[in-house]
Simulated assay, not measured.
Amino acid sequence: MRQLFVIVILLVTGSLQAWSQDHYDAKKALSSEELFLKQGNTSRIIATPGQKYLVLDASPMIGGFHRYRFFPGDNIKFRMHNETIRFNETIASVSDSSFSIAIINEAVGRMDYQEILLKDIRLMKVSRRIPFISQLAPLLPLAGLIYVGADFFNKGVDDKRFTTDASSLVVGGAFIAAGFVCYKLTFSSLKINSRNKLKVLETY
């Protein structure tokens, strides 16, 4: 059983190391400013000083404070009060108390713009890449299933196949639970309230 546990750990850490090696190139290392600009959509519009953009200052129950920035051209996911629609649109422009999204009107074959007031936003879906944590989100549940599956299909201390014990289920469940926590740290649905404030700032 201990050997099986070690194998699963090696698989997870090996995947993380391979991911890091495949994605890092010293010659292509970006400056802090370039990294900031690459966080969003490639269609992000970075203009002259004085451009307005959305800011979500979030203090969720899991994880610490984080500031999310949304510029014109970025994708934004949100829900509004008294609405069942899940918006997943591109920001067209930002004003002092609202922002506009572009909607294709297929009936007349043109692009329409809908203004969204900040006070009407009820919930926002956001994500952020946390080193190792974001990569572990899908790997840990998979490792848990592999661990339980390997114990189930291989002979155990009772010299029988297709059986498992409580300790294997506990270890596998712990992997899956840890993966769920990593997922919640990476992807969040934040209600706009006193803890999670949506506002408009300007570049300078």
Score class of each variant (00 low, 15 high):
I146S: 02
T48A: 15
G173P: 09
I46A: 12
P72K: 02
I91N: 00
N105L: 09
I104Y: 15
L139A: 03
I45F: 13
G50M: 09
G63K: 04
L185M: 11
S97A: 12
G173L: 07
A150H: 06
L10T: 12
Y183W: 12
C182M: 03
K155R: 12
G173H: 08
D112A: 09
F99I: 04
R128C: 00
S127A: 07
L118T: 04
F70P: 02
E89P: 01
F152P: 03
L118W: 07
I176S: 11
E115V: 15
L37P: 00
P72I: 01
L190C: 02
L11A: 13
G73K: 00
R129G: 00
T90V: 11
L201P: 06
I91F: 05
K52R: 15
A150Y: 10
A18F: 12
M61P: 07
K27G: 14
N105R: 13
A58H: 07
A29V: 13
L54M: 06
S167T: 10
A29L: 09
F152A: 04
V171I: 15
L123F: 08
F187W: 10
S168Y: 05
S20A: 13
V171T: 10
I176E: 03
V126C: 01
K52N: 11
A178Y: 05
V108Y: 11
K28T: 10
I62M: 14
T203S: 15
A174M: 15
V12S: 05
E106I: 13
C182R: 00
N41F: 08
R122A: 14
L142M: 12
L139Q: 01
Y183I: 00
R161C: 06
F87H: 15
G156S: 01
Y113S: 12
K125G: 11
L136N: 00
A92D: 11
R128D: 00
I45Y: 13
N88F: 08
F175G: 05
L169W: 08
T164I: 06
Q39F: 03
F132D: 01
F71V: 07
L11M: 14
F132K: 06
V6I: 15
L190A: 03
F71M: 15
S31Q: 01
I121N: 02
D158R: 09
F162A: 04
Q3F: 14
S20G: 07
A107P: 07
N105P: 06
M80L: 15
S97L: 09
T48P: 05
G64M: 05
L37A: 13
I146D: 00
L139C: 01
S93Y: 04
F99R: 05
D74I: 02
N193T: 05
D96N: 14
